[in-house]
Amino acid sequence: MKAESIPTRNGFGDEIAQLGHENEDIVVVDVDIGKSCRTDKFRAELPEQYLNVGIAEQNAAGVAAGLATCGKIPFVVTYAVFGALRMAEMIRQEICYPELNVKIACSHGGLTPANDGASHQSIEDMGVLRTLPNMTVIMPADYNATRKLVREAAEFDGPIYLRFTRDGIPQIYNEDVEFEIGKAHQIQDGSDIAIVANGDTVHLAIDAAEELKNKGLSARVLDMHTIKPIDEEAIKDIINNIGKIITVEDHNILNGLGSAVSEIIAEEGKGKLKRIGVQDQFGQSAPYERLLEMNGITVDNIVETALNFEN
């Protein structure tokens, strides 16, 4: 049964408003795309905790750092490509180096700003921020996961990058599901192969596992919502008990989830990996599903990769 599709930015918007009511130290720092990032409810209901610094992302990062030194819990809200790349050095210098309690909460992750074209599609963000010391990098897989992980992030003391989708993605979890930062969420167990995905590709992994079951292959499916710190135990468990891993991500094939997993495999000296993701190429204006297809980020390709996975 396919539930309705909801963009995960909506989950952020709903949860941040609730968190703001619960804790007056939570501050939203917008950069003129609040409406699009779903902070409009927060803005309307909590004007005393709301800042909009205009189209000035670098400054937004610094303002947030200053707020955090005074006990505030700022969420800088923008699109992933700007939040990770335009602000990268400010995040490094003023947020990660002093280890301040600032959250960078970004909509429009991966290829989800599809019609906007390559300028707005964010395929490098998690990789760039993954290399910053003290940074935690998270992409939730649906609306309910987003609400839970945004709440976890607000309660966590330190810099976090959160990445959401612009476009709707299918719902996977019910409201009671719990998540822990840095701990993979196992959706189903399996013994022949493991599919490790995050964000908007988790539902593809679930569908692929279902098809593989019909073809006689048992697949473990992990939602690796936190790619840094990555859940090494979960990956090592696959390496030791299953051996074959397919990673699936809406991010450049370089330096994202697949790279993080391959680092563990390389150091362990065992396990086999196939990476599915953006093929180190810029996108274009096109339907979101078409962009995924152009990069092989599809249920069919996951299934085919699993069936052709050499022993």
Binding site: N59, A60, G66, L67
Partner: peptide, 9 residues
């Protein structure tokens, strides 16, 4: 910018 954040706080 950091000073601005502190002043706002």
């Amino acid at each position: 910018a950091c000073g601005v954040g502190m002043a706002i706080a």
